[in-house]
Design a protein around this nucleic acid. Structure first.
Length: 602
RNA sequence: GGGGUUGUAGUUCAGUUCGGUUAGAAUGCCGGCCUGUCACGCCGGAGGUCGCGAGUUCGAGUCUCGUCGGCCCCGCCA
């Protein structure tokens, strides 16, 4: 290695010194006599100058033929620039070259390698190795490394043991679709790629490792989104002899440490705790963004005698009239209010939601104005004046509670975004607690687990007999389960697990598995629980999402070195691909042609 | 499985309404000139399977049907 320092790290200390830089040519500017080359490496850009007065002819000849993305090694003296470039951190210095080695040429790249490149993302994904040269992605990839490093260092200090768990595992029937891998030795049988190391981390606890973690790759064969990739990384963490408080404590200290180390941001602790029901009632979602207030409030009582037909109907149908107050919304123009109405309608149409009227009211000198002004009685007006300020704009929806509260939840986020209520540098965590253990699947008419079937029920509810096949009882049973939400995005779920095999059996039975099926699929786990399983629990924060939020980005693809498209393709390697007939034959696999399938089903 | 949107020089786009001569621009690339640029400048040049395949038509980048990609979203994601 001849390089003596990185391009972005050249500073005053090196003035007058001879240094060697290696890297890529960002740009060459040949002014006829003097030639400039901007050299780029992962640290930044530095200007090299070649002068006819002080450079040999051969050196000038090589420099003249240098093109973008050529790889060069250059030696020279660092000096101050007579006309600094304020746009570059190193713009006040330059190197007067004395030696130049062309290490490799480059074809003209298909797109400009700078942060404000004009190429579209699909092209950049084909040439991801070029895209990754852009400072933006270099910064993201390195930042991600810093986050993972901070996590490891913190957990090592806390006495956690890093354990690798297998990638080729038994297919688990519950939850997301598995990626499956055919077995050659056992034809007709398949491994699955893990959706998470869930069972192995529990088994690690039973094995006595006490505090486990892993930066684990997880695979789920479901459709992607901008915040979802088919393979993703979790910090998987589990501890024995713990309750919820222990998990909250270690998680809060971990995140404080990550944000302090990587962003120099102080995170407020303890994280606010919000029960699942309260989250749904006040925020209309189980992943509330608590960076702003604007909570959902119930106005049903206020309008119970209303002369407005829609309200009358709603009250009759035991629906609700819910609303949010937009602070400083009273000065919204007609146009702004219309835009909100239009946006709401659009949402309802495209998500096929119940179409409710959009009602707005405001108070001006004690006088109520708005869509249903003429229906507001004197009593109602005075009650309203007690609840809204002159600066507020009140938006009301009437209908079935579950529907309108989630719509208000979405509206709440929309307003916060458009009214710029959110500070980009604000990070607010909260715990969502007291989730139900089960939920009702209307389509299949069966009970399912809300989180996963290894979550322990709330022991009070267990003693009340709610752990039952009876739907009414089961749906009342709370779980020892918690979500960690950051800025309105679900970062993580965790729970205290079942260590009592009887309870574990019961839960699997309630979700409709026969004893034989339980033994076949989860026999190893239930066996393990019988041989001295300690109480244990854990959590598994998503690293990709965490890094995305920390960097203020909207797309997960910007925090993966090598992401897939929204349809699960790797445009660079063209995966997935067909395989040789021989490979399939070895696995005992016959392909069913797509056309045949179409004929049969059509 | 469904909805929306998109595909034209290497790249980003215009042209599609209402079919009609040789498909344009910017940028990049190549050549020449240029001694302080930094998105260098000036002059010149090359560069096109209009995603692919059928169809309608005297004639299709433009209309119809199919198909293959990209992006966003619903469903799905214990």
């Amino acid at each position: 290695m001849n390089r003596t320092c990185y391009a972005g790290e050249v500073n005053d200390c090196l003035l007058g010194k001879k240094v060697t830089l290696c890297g890529w040519v960002q740009r060459q500017r040949d002014l006829g006599g003097v030639i400039f080359i901007d050299l780029r490496d992962r640290s930044g850009i530095f200007q090299i100058v070649f002068e006819p007065e002080s450079c040999e002819e051969e050196l000038l000849r090589i420099a003249k033929n240098i093109r973008s993305e050529f790889i060069i090694e250059v030696v020279g003296i660092i000096r101050k620039r007579s006309n600094p470039n304020p746009n570059l951190p190193t713009g006040y210095l330059e190197m007067l070259a004395s030696e130049l080695t062309l290490l490799n040429e480059s074809e003209t790249p298909p797109f400009l390698i700078t942060d404000n490149t004009d190429a579209k993302e699909d092209l950049r994904l084909v040439y991801r190795f070029l895209d990754l040269r852009r400072p933006f992605l270099q910064k993201n990839v390195i930042f991600r490394h810093e986050v993972v490093k901070a996590i490891r260092e913190f957990l090592y200090k806390e006495g956690f043991i890093e354990i690798e768990t297998p990638m080729l595992i038994r297919s688990t029937p519950e939850g997301a679709r598995d990626y499956i891998v055919p077995s050659r030795i056992y034809q007709g049988k398949f491994y699955a790629l893990p959706q998470s190391p869930q069972l192995f981390k529990q088994l690690s606890m039973i094995a006595g490792f006490d505090k486990y973690f892993q930066i684990a790759r997880c695979f789920r064969d479901e459709d992607s989104r901008s915040d979802r990739q088919p393979e993703f990384t979790q910090l998987d963490l589990e501890m024995s002899f713990v309750n919820e408080e222990d998990i909250y404590d270690i998680t809060e200290r971990l995140f404080c440490n990550i944000f302090k180390t990587c962003l120099n941001v102080n995170i407020q602790t303890p994280f606010q705790r919000i029960s699942y029901l309260k989250a749904l009632t006040e925020y209309g979602t189980d992943k509330p963004d608590i960076r702003f207030e604007m909570k959902i409030e119930d106005y049903s009582d206020l309008f119970k005698e209303s002369s407005f037909p829609v309200f009358q109907k709603t009250i009759e149908d035991s629906g609700r009239i819910l609303g949010i107050k937009i602070a400083d919304g009273s000065n919204y123009s007609r146009k702004e209010i219309e835009n909100l109405q239009e946006w709401m309608k659009e949402q309802q149409r495209s998500f096929r939601l119940q179409e409710t009227g959009f009602i707005w009211l405001k108070s001006n000198n004690q006088e109520i104005q708005g869509t249903i002004k003429k229906y507001v009685s004197i009593t109602e007006a005075s009650l309203l004046n007690g609840r809204i300020k002159e600066t507020d704009l009140l938006v009301l929806l009437a209908g079935k509670e579950s529907e309108i509260s989630s719509q208000l939840g979405v509206l709440r986020n929309h307003i916060a975004k458009t009214a710029k209520l959110i500070d980009k540098n604000d990070f607010k965590f909260c715990w969502i607690t007291d989730f139900p253990l089960f939920k009702w699947n209307e389509e299949e008419q069966k009970i399912e687990t809300e989180h996963h079937p290894f979550t322990q029920p709330n022991m009070d509810d267990y003693r009340e007999g709610y752990l039952s096949e009876e739907k009414e009882k089961a749906l009342k049973c709370r779980a020892r389960c918690y979500d960690l939400v950051l800025n309105g995005i679900e970062l993580s779920s965790g729970s205290i697990r079942n260590h009592d095999p009887k309870i574990q059996y019961k839960i699997l039975e309630i979700i409709g598995m026969s004893k034989a099926e339980i033994d076949r699929r989860f026999g190893f786990l239930l066996d393990a629980l019988k041989y001295g399983a300690p109480p244990h629990g854990g959590i598994a924060p998503g690293i990709d999402r965490l890094v995305m939020i920390m960097l203020g980005l909207d797309s997960l693809r910007d925090v993966y070195a090598f992401p897939k498209t929204s349809t699960g393709l790797c445009l660079m390697t063209k995966a997935p691909s067909e395989v040789d007939k021989e490979q399939l034959a070895e696995l005992g696999i016959n392909l069913v042609s797509k056309n045949v399938e179409k004929k049969e089903t059509g």
